[in-house]
């Protein structure tokens, strides 16, 4: 299973990746999979086991996502 966050803007995709990496979590921006196509065109992977931490980081850093997906 892969965990991906999607965004309305590429701006937020970049902030998400920086926020995760800043917290020591692996994250990588990728082209959004076609099944999740309704977004800015970029998604960002994050460690599934750290999803709670990722959501908390997004809240703290005011990073807005359009969804968290498990595919």
């Amino acid at each position: 299973m892969e965990c991906l966050a999607t965004f309305d803007t590429t701006h937020m995709a970049l902030l998400f990746e920086k926020a995760c990496r800043g917290a020591g979590l692996s994250a990588r921006i990728i082209p959004v999979p076609r099944e999740l196509s309704a977004s800015c065109g970029l998604a960002c992977s994050y460690p599934c086991e750290s999803e709670e931490a990722v959501i908390r980081i997004c809240h703290e850093k005011r990073v807005e996502t359009s969804g968290f997906h498990h595919i």
């Binding site: 309305d8 803007t9 590429t10 701006h11 196509s37 309704a38 977004s39 800015c40 065109g41």
Partner: peptide, 16 residues
């Protein structure tokens, strides 16, 4: 805009 490419109308989000 490189975003919302499945839509034929302009995105309403900023900055796009």
């Amino acid at each position: 805009t490189g975003s919302f490419s499945h839509e034929e109308v302009q995105p309403s989000v900023l900055p796009d």
